[in-house]
């Protein structure tokens, strides 16, 4: 079967959609289940991304090594796999630290605390030349295999990322139906009361935040491989905004909320508009990023005004309301 229609740009667009769906699942568990505000999604994602670049052995654009240079006893793909695992652990440790710091805070404090964390990651990426390559970034992050062409390599990486995101989605679905998930929901809704349920709700919440932050780091590490080159410009707040907008648009309390939300936002812009809309090239470079943020913002306002629980909303509540008031 011919795959000519599947351009490299489309593969990259699909990768972004898949990655944001994964991030949406993870943020859904943090915000939709446990009620933890995270305005620093890009920080955990970026930590995983940069940790991968550093651990894997990426180098500054000039070709000089970074100060951390691990003498890997084996090559790819094991070097990349080990680097992804370690980058995930680094992001998880970041999640553990920040989760512990914000555990006693209210939602406002959590949002500020996580935003601060993202700012720290950004500043480290921008200022620590020996560690992160500073503005010059980190390069030399090729696919850990070669199956013929760049597009084929990217397609395989997309499949790997899709499998990981499906696993994250399945985990999310299982959490929803487990006693652990109910404890998380209970903690998110009424934390003081949840403390008297006989289970260490604060530790449950911290563990969940750690695991989901590690998941964001994993997706960041996956992204590092497909872009090959990391710069601080990738750590913009737009990453966090895209995940939050998609989640709220789709429905923060529903498992499928992030999927619907990402398809309507990232999918629409990064695939439909970017690849198929008949606009001049200059428009994509200059206007689209701005138009995209404006439309995201307006969609958020409209959804919060008319459908605060998102497009999918809380179907259980909708069903109940229909049974009371009729269709």
């Amino acid at each position: 079967m011919s795959t000519d229609w599947l351009s490299s740009a489309l593969v990259f667009g699909l990768f972004e959609v898949v990655m944001y769906i994964g991030m949406g699942f993870l943020l859904h568990m943090q915000l939709g289940l446990a009620g933890i505000g995270n305005f620093g999604v890009v920080g955990f994602w970026g930590l995983g991304m940069y940790a991968y670049g550093i651990i894997y052995g990426g180098h500054a654009p000039s070709g000089t090594d970074l100060i951390i240079d691990i003498p890997w006893p084996f090559g790819d793909p094991w070097q990349a796999i080990a680097s992804v695992i370690l980058a995930t652990l680094v992001a998880g440790l970041g999640g553990l630290l920040i989760g512990w710091i914000i555990s006693g805070m209210d939602l406002d404090g959590q949002l500020v605390g996580t935003f601060g964390f993202a700012a720290i990651v950004f500043l480290l990426a921008r200022s620590q030349k020996g560690l992160t390559g500073s503005e010059g970034g980190i390069g030399g992050l090729d696919f850990p295999y070669d199956i013929g062409s760049e597009k084929a390599n990217a397609m395989l990486w997309l499949l790997v990322a899709s499998a990981i995101v499906i696993a994250i989605g399945y985990y999310t679905w299982r959490v929803h139906r487990s006693p652990y998930g109910r404890l998380l929901i209970a903690t998110g809704q009424n934390e003081p009361l949840a403390r008297s349920l006989g289970k260490p709700s604060n530790l449950t919440k911290l563990w969940m935040f750690t695991v989901t932050s590690a998941g964001m780091g994993l997706l960041g590490a996956m992204f590092a491989v497909i872009v090959h080159f990391l710069t601080p410009l990738k750590l913009g707040v737009d990453v966090t905004l895209a995940v939050i907008v998609a989640l709220i648009l789709g429905g923060a309390a529903r498992v499928w909320g992030p999927v619907i939300g990402v398809l309507l936002t990232v999918g629409l812009f990064e695939i439909v508009v970017q690849l198929y809309a008949p606009f001049p090239d200059s428009w994509y470079r200059q206007a689209m990023p701005v138009v995209k943020q404006i439309i995201y913002g307006m969609s958020l306002i409209v959804v919060l005004m008319y459908r605060p629980l998102g497009i999918l909303g809380d179907m259980r509540r909708d069903k109940l309301m229909r049974s009371i008031h009729g269709d």
Binding site: P179, R182, L183, I185, A186, Q189, N190, P192, L193, A194, L197, G198, K199, A253, D314, R316
Partner: peptide
Amino acid sequence: KGLFPELTVGENLNVGGMI
């Protein structure tokens, strides 16, 4: 605030019965 408002009656009881 002795309840978890977004959980059903049955789920509230189940959460209570985790131990």
